[in-house]
C-alpha cells in the first residue's frame, strides 16, 4: 500500500511539469507568422511526426501535399505545394507557426489551422456532422505539432 502511494507521487511529479509547460491553443504567441517557443518544451520526434502526417484522422498532410520522402504513401494530393525541401525554406519557428495557424502567414489559404480551438463557424463534433461539444480540442495535440515540425525539418534538398 505504502509503496503504491510512493509510485503515484513519482508519476505525478513527472507528469506535472509537462502539463504546466504545454501552451494552450489560445495562448500561442505569434511573431508575425512564426511561433518561436516550443508548444510543449519536449523535443519533437520526427518518426512520430511522419505517422501524424499520413494518418487520415490526424494531420493527413499528404491529402494535399506531396512528400517525396514518403514514396510508399499512395494518392498524395496536390492542392498545396510539395513539402520537399521544407526544412531548407522555413525555420523551425516558421514551420510551427504554419502548422498552428497558417492563415497568419497566408491570408485565405485553404490549409486548416491544426492547433486552434476558437473562431470557427459551425464547428462539428469530429466528422459526425453534429455540433461540437463545448470542449472540443485542436486537430493535433501540442506534441503532435512538435513531432511534425521535427519531421519537416529533416526535409532538406
Amino acid at each position: 500500500m505504502k509503496r503504491q502511494f510512493v509510485l503515484a507521487a513519482a508519476v505525478s511529479a513527472f507528469a506535472a511539469p509537462a502539463a504546466i509547460s504545454e501552451t494552450a491553443p489560445d495562448d500561442v504567441v505569434f511573431n508575425e507568422y512564426a511561433v518561436e517557443a516550443s508548444l510543449t518544451g519536449v523535443a519533437g520526434d520526427a518518426e512520430a511526426g511522419a505517422k501524424v502526417m499520413t494518418n487520415r484522422g490526424q494531420g493527413n498532410c499528404v491529402a494535399c501535399h506531396m512528400v517525396g520522402t514518403m514514396p510508399d504513401v499512395p494518392f498524395q494530393g496536390n492542392v498545396g505545394p510539395a513539402l520537399d525541401g521544407a526544412g531548407d525554406r522555413w525555420t523551425e519557428a516558421e514551420l510551427r507557426g504554419l502548422l498552428v495557424d497558417s492563415k497568419q502567414a497566408f491570408d485565405g489559404t485553404v490549409m486548416p489551422a491544426f492547433y486552434k480551438t476558437s473562431g470557427f463557424i459551425r464547428p462539428g463534433d469530429g466528422y459526425t456532422g453534429k455540433a461540437a461539444t463545448d470542449t472540443f480540442g485542436p486537430i493535433l495535440t501540442a506534441q503532435q505539432v512538435e513531432d511534425v515540425v521535427a519531421y519537416l525539418l529533416t526535409l532538406k534538398e
Binding site: 459551425r122 464547428p123 462539428g124 459526425t128 456532422g129 461540437a132
Partner: peptide, 9 residues
Amino acid sequence: CIRDTRAET
C-alpha cells in the same frame, strides 16, 4: 461535404 469539413451540417 460539410460534414467532411468537421462542421455541424
